[in-house]
Each structure stands twice: as C-alpha cells, then as structure tokens.
C-alpha cells in the first residue's frame, strides 16, 4: 500500500547529522558517573602492583608472561563490564526520566539517537582497553617471542568484540530492564562459549548443533590476547579477515534489531 512516505535507510547520512552532539552528551554523562573513576582506580592499582614487581625484579619469563597476561585480561574484562553497564542504561534511563522527549523533539531521529548513544559507549570501552594495554606494555617486560603485530591484531579484534557487546546490550536494553540486560549480556559475554558448547552437545554435533553454534555470538573467538602473551604467530590473513567480518556482521545484526525495535517502540 503506497503511503507517499518513504522510510530513509537506517544508516543514511541525513539521520546521522546530530551525532556529534549526542556523542558529546554521552561523554559528559559518562564522566559524571562513577564507573570511569572505578576503572581508573583499578588501573592505578594494577599499575602500582606491576611497578612494584618491576622494581623488585621479575625473575622468570613465566612471571613476566603472567603479569602481562593479567593486565590484558583485566583490561578486556573491565572494558567489557564498562560497555555493558553503560550501554544497558543509555536508553531505558532516558525513557524512564522522560528526557528522551526534548531530545527527539529537536528533531533528532530515533536511529540517530541510537547511534549517538552506541558510538561513544563503544568508544569508552575501547579507550579503557587501550589505557590498560598501554599501562601493561609500559610496565611489564616484553618477552622476545611476543610480537607487536600480534598485539595490534588482538587489540583490534577486542575492540570489534566490544562493538558487538555494545550493539547487543543496547538491543537487549530495548526489550528488558537494565539490570536484567546487564546480567544477560554479561552471561553471554563471559560464559557464552560454555552455553553454546552445552547446547551443541545437547543437540549433537550434527547440522542442528552447528547451526545453533553459528547463530550464537561467541565473543571468545575475538579474544586473542593470550595468543600474543604466549608468543603465538599472527593468524593467517584469511582467518583475521574472517574474524573481522564475523564481528562486523554480529554488530550489524544487533544494530539492525535495535533499530527495528526502537523505530516502532512506544515511548
């Protein structure tokens, strides 16, 4: 049925014009929140501990590997938590406090609002991760087998993993309350692989099991810091590309689901 009204594409430039203002608003809001300071405090604690160990002397390569691995693991974990906690509260809180009305009355389109909330949330996660990585690399000794190229690829993949997590959390937060969203997304982010393996074992490793595994966001695939810490080689370019495509497709899927939901959502 022709209505004379054509819906613009979800990612059309016209919809994204107010984006910088929205990004700035989220950034200012995040600075006022406590999570950033907690993260800074934890980074400081880790940095102090690593510094003390460095001064006392790290005697074996195993210890060096352990401390460096701990820094990356901690950075990845805290960045993921920051993304989940921040993303889960962006839109539900705006809706609950009714501050979404003046924003949408600008007029800012709903898709633009969604992107304007998601992008800085992801940026926060990447910034936190980068800070941890810089502190870890600066404060812990590098082993000869640890390659900077592998580290860069691991950082890139982790950043893409945070993009999935942001899109997924924003998407789920449009259906569920923030606390439930945080728990669910946290469970998928940190225990998703076990759940997927469990489901695959229940269904058998035949066609259905493989399909279910394919349709489950496995963020652990993108966690490659251990490869760097262990001194592993850079993944083959085809594998690296496949991992990037995997992350981008999942981000796209969740972003589209969120856009579809938010477009028709009664506020």
């Amino acid at each position: 049925m022709a209505t004379g009204y054509t819906t613009p594409l979800p990612l059309s430039p016209a919809r994204l014009r107010p984006l910088p203002h929205l990004v700035r608003a989220v950034w200012l809001e995040s600075l006022r929140r406590n999570e950033m300071w907690v993260l800074g405090l934890l980074l400081g604690l880790y940095a102090a501990a690593a510094l003390v160990l460095r001064i006392v002397g790290i005697e074996s390569p195993q210890s060096a590997r352990f401390i460096r691995g701990l820094g990356f693991d901690l950075g990845g974990l805290l960045a993921s938590l920051l993304v989940i906690v921040t993303a889960a509260r962006q839109l539900p809180v705006e809706i609950e406090l009714r501050t979404i009305y003046p924003v949408l009355a600008k007029p800012v389109r709903r898709e633009a609002l969604l992107w304007g909330k998601a992008l800085p949330t992801w940026g926060l996660g990447v910034a936190a991760l980068t800070m941890f990585c810089i502190a870890t690399v600066a404060l812990t000794p590098t082993l000869p087998q640890q390659s900077a190229l592998v580290l860069m690829s691991a950082l890139l993949l982790k950043a893409l993993s945070l993009a999935i997590l942001t899109a997924m959390t924003m998407c789920v937060s449009l259906w569920l309350p923030p606390a439930v969203t945080m728990l669910l997304c946290g469970a998928i982010a940190f225990g998703g692989r076990f759940a997927a393996n469990f489901v695959v074992q229940l269904c058998g490793e035949g066609r259905w099991g493989n399909w279910l595994a394919a349709l489950w966001p496995d963020l652990s695939l993108l966690g490659q810091f251990q490869r760097y810490v262990d001194g592993g080689a850079l993944p083959a370019p085809s594998v690296l590309l496949a991992l990037m495509v995997y992350a981008l497709v999942w981000t796209f899927v969740f972003a589209m689901l969120a856009a579809g939901r938010f477009r028709r959502m009664p506020i």
């Binding site: 394919a214 349709l215 594998v239 496949a242 497709v249 899927v253």
Partner: peptide
C-alpha cells in the same frame, strides 16, 4: 551470512 562463516573460525582459539 554467519552460518557459512562460523565453521571456518573453529581453529582460531
């Protein structure tokens, strides 16, 4: 699109 992509990532870990 994910269905054919996923099996090729099995060895990345």
């Amino acid at each position: 699109a994910l269905i054919p992509l996923r099996p090729s990532l099995a060895t990345t870990a």
